[in-house]
Design a protein around this nucleic acid. Structure first.
Lengths: 276, 276
DNA sequence: TGCGGCTAATTTGTCAGACAAGATGTTAAA
DNA sequence: TTTAACATCTTGTCTGACAAATTAGCCGCA
């Protein structure tokens, strides 16, 4: 029959075009939330493509959270829309870290302010515990980076607004990679931690007292200092870290496997998993 | 040959298992950043599956930003791993909008501050144009929501820190859905816009003058007022809007034209559905 | 009529083989 | 040495088939 069979324009990535079209169609309301969309065969005929391409396109939408598929039943438009934000983790350079900290600062400051107003007693307790954890980790010879981030996270939690924890967690995953680079120097760590402990204490005290403005000020000071410390990080240290990463990139790229003795093994950690 | 051909355990979604395995292998450093991973045929043999499944698995990783594929060349581990943040868009309720605005406020304030310090002349010009666009849209009888968001986006751009635009774009997607609900009342719009125009002008003036603190103050005032206006939105209006949305759930009507932005992508996802 | 269970049709998931479209490396020619 | 043609490899797409799971219909029965 003279079915409409829209002809896909010859371009790059046929399946991508189809995914885009399907996405548009869904967002245009052609099939409502939870509705079952046509079978793969039908879609293939409609767009004039094979089932393989339809499957790849649907696979993309599924990964994007737009569609869910049930074997034997069909593919369905997802019930609740989502937006997703993606951040690439480049080779650690100080500039990108600073950019992230610029964003973090106002968020942390506001989180501290809200935490002072809203924190429950149990949340206050957890903030205290997190501070203790940092000390213990440092005394145990660890970098304390994770504990440091965890401390800030408890504050964000105490703000009782899920978006703060979501965004800060998001960027913490980035910083987790990057900060490690700047804190490997032993001599630095000591003076560093002395300063940090005091600043953390000030934030905690203000939150405990319920003084929103003081908490905000303390957090602002802490984060400004953090950025200053980062800018003052010895460039040779950063450079050597970068070289190490570079060296790993080429060596691993050549050898197939078998090398368990990777020097900086954690640099390829990522995560873009699908938290479904 | 005594190839190791690991046998996949019979479970849900074979391709998913393979994707997980590949993801684990990559994170374990089996193939470094930018390295080419085995051909689809080789992977199929290795895991004892067909090429289709390998392709689906790789498709997932590709969508997750973990690998990139080039036709004729191969599939490669992505140069920069990525982290992703996902936000479900619930049925619009005023509480969730307020939570988002709480997060937005400090970001917008900081963006305005940075914009006052860093904006180029062309960026300043674009902010001005965006403000004019709002007026024109309102005079044309439109809601002006899109133009309003665009205005704020030009300010975020002028901060010259990509993360501000990324995060604000991210939440704008959410607000785009939600705000529409609160601004459909005609009588509200007029007084609303009168107020808003003045506040916008104050921000623009401060940015034009390069006065960071004034820009921050103006932005803070604007966003506090925005939240106040939202809280004062007549509940019956909101309720009717919610009902409308309920009725709309069977046919989602979203803005059709949304060209892809770099790091923010919209989808419509859900969480847990219980069909029958 | 109402209901339970069996069967058949439908639909996605997986398999297998083939060709098309690019990319890469090698060789031959200028 | 540089350039152009070629052979080979790899992903992208097509086609057809079967397996697995769900859904709908049908039949028998109380």
């Amino acid at each position: 029959m003279s079915e409409t069979q829209e002809q896909p324009s010859r371009g790059p990535q046929l399946s991508e075009q189809v995914a885009q079209r399907l996405s548009d169609a869904i967002q245009a309301g052609e099939w409502g939330r939870g509705a079952r969309l046509p079978t793969e065969a039908a879609l293939g005929e409609r767009y004039g493509i094979s089932r393989s391409v339809v499957r790849e396109a649907i696979s993309m939408l599924r990964n994007g959270g737009l569609v869910t598929s049930r074997r034997g039943s069909g593919s369905f438009v997802a019930e609740s829309p989502t937006v997703s934000l993606r951040l690439a983790i480049p080779d650690p350079d100080i500039q990108s870290v600073i950019e992230v900290l610029e964003l973090r600062r106002p968020l942390e400051v506001e989180a501290a302010r809200l935490a002072a107003e809203r924190r429950t007693l149990s949340q206050l307790r957890r903030i205290r515990n997190a501070m203790v954890d940092i000390d213990e980790a440092v005394e145990a010879g660890l970098s304390g980076v994770d504990q440091d981030l965890a401390f800030h996270r408890t504050i964000a939690e105490a703000a009782n607004n899920t978006h703060f924890t979501a965004v800060l967690d998001f960027y913490n995953r980035f910083l987790h990679h990057a900060i490690r680079v700047t804190r490997t120097n032993e001599s630095l760590r000591e003076t560093f931690m002395l300063q940090v402990v005091g600043e953390h204490q000030a934030i905690l005290d203000a939150i405990a007292a319920g003084d929103a403005e003081a908490a905000a000020r303390a957090a602002a000071i802490h984060l400004e200092h953090a950025e200053t410390r980062l800018r003052q990080a010895p460039t040779d240290l950063l450079k050597s870290a970068l070289e190490r990463v570079e060296a790993q990139r080429s060596s691993v790229a050549v050898t197939p496997s078998e090398s368990e003795s990777v020097s900086v093994s954690e640099s390829t950690e990522h995560t873009g998993d699908n938290p479904q």
